[in-house]
């Protein structure tokens, strides 16, 4: 594989190669995830010290998780696409389009007439549809994922603006009764919001899918060495399509969580979600070159980001400061990853 030889090169040009047991541990995914847990714990300590009770309360913990849920669901899907050797920049736009589509008066009316789950279905189908278009054009049209999903980013948001006429659509406006929908998503089970449960379920399904099924194994093969996967008889193109549909579905679910939380659908929803999701996945130790990554890492990555955001808010720091800090963390994580990757190439 090309990135492999590139790694050999990098290793060959590297100057200092002393053996370090701590680094060796960090190279395994279990070790890396343990590292992330430590990082998260440290961040929590900082939170507790700087914001005291306001940070440590159960309520605040739930706030953090609620914040994590929406972006978390997207990140799980993104993990699959990235392990499979691709990238999806259009998730935020798909969230917007799904949210707008399932809150149009027509779908609300439709949902009221039949059942509120129709709205859920619509949101997920819109996500899946966008993913299908992405996947088909990437796999069979040979368009680079970066470009294709960039195009989708622009078009999906554009379509969302057209559908909504750039106005925020309010759930249950104009007398439609979608209380079933609201009741379902705003319920708590065992004191925890439904949205958090949904994130947990998506994460568990994602883990099982990646680690225990042929689908997951194929994803790793397709991302790790597409030529080898193809010659081993895996239908690489079709699998690529599945991956983009999967992330599209995740974006659809995220749109539902967002609609429920804000009771609105808007073409500005999900703005920059793609960046947050990619950042969480990368921090979680998934290689951007494909072939390697973990769901646990992604979940930890999401939690680290949402906890940080929470601490910044509790301490009344500006959004700008927060962004600056996030950027620094991403760079640090990638630098660490590259060092580990080049050191682990010894064959």
């Amino acid at each position: 594989m090309s990135h492999d030889t590139a790694r050999v090169e990098r290793a060959a040009l590297e100057t200092d190669r002393e053996y370090n047991p701590a680094l060796a541990l960090l190279r395994t995914s279990v070790g890396r995830n343990a590292g992330l847990v430590v990082a998260l714990a440290l961040i929590c300590v900082v939170g507790a010290v700087s914001a005291g009770d306001r940070f440590t309360s159960t309520d605040n913990a739930l706030t953090v998780l609620r914040l994590a849920a929406t972006i978390g669901v997207v990140s799980i899907g993104m993990t699959f696409v990235i392990i499979g050797g691709g990238i999806d920049l259009s998730v935020g736009a798909i969230v917007a389009l799904s949210s707008v589509w399932c809150t149009t008066l027509a779908s609300q009316q439709f949902a009221e007439d039949s059942h509120w789950t129709m709205m859920v279905l619509i949101a997920i189908l819109v996500g899946a549809g966008c993913g299908l278009v992405n996947g088909l054009l990437i796999a069979y049209g040979n368009i680079v994922p970066f470009i294709m999903t960039l195009a989708m980013l622009a078009s999906a948001r554009g379509l969302a603006e057209i559908i909504s006429d750039k106005k925020t659509q309010i759930l249950g406006a104009k007398g439609t009764d979608v209380s079933g929908f609201k009741d379902f998503f705003n319920r708590e089970i065992l004191g925890v919001d439904v949205s958090i449960w949904i994130f947990a379920i998506v994460a568990v399904i994602g883990w099982v899918l990646l680690n225990r099924t042929t689908f997951g194994r194929r994803t790793v093969a397709v991302g790790g060495n597409p030529e080898a996967a193809r010659l081993a008889g895996i239908n690489v193109k079709r699998h690529t399509v599945y991956l983009y549909v999967l992330v599209g579905v995740c974006a659809g679910i995220a749109a539902l969580l967002l609609v429920a939380r804000t009771t609105t659908g808007s073409s500005t929803h999900g703005n920059l979600y793609e960046l947050d999701a990619i950042a969480a996945v990368v921090i979680g130790g998934t290689l951007l070159t494909g072939g390697r990554g973990t769901i646990v890492g992604t979940v930890l990555g999401v939690l680290i980001f949402s906890t940080l955001t929470n601490i910044f808010i509790l301490n009344n720091r500006s959004f700008s400061e927060q962004s600056l800090f996030k950027g620094a963390i991403i760079v640090a994580a990638v630098l660490l990853q590259q060092r580990l990757a080049s050191r682990s190439t010894t064959t």
């Binding site: 790793v220 072939g291 390697r292 064959t347």
Partner: peptide
């Protein structure tokens, strides 16, 4: 074997 057959990290 390396470029066409193996998933080296697996």
């Amino acid at each position: 074997r390396k470029s066409q057959a193996l998933l080296l990290d697996e």
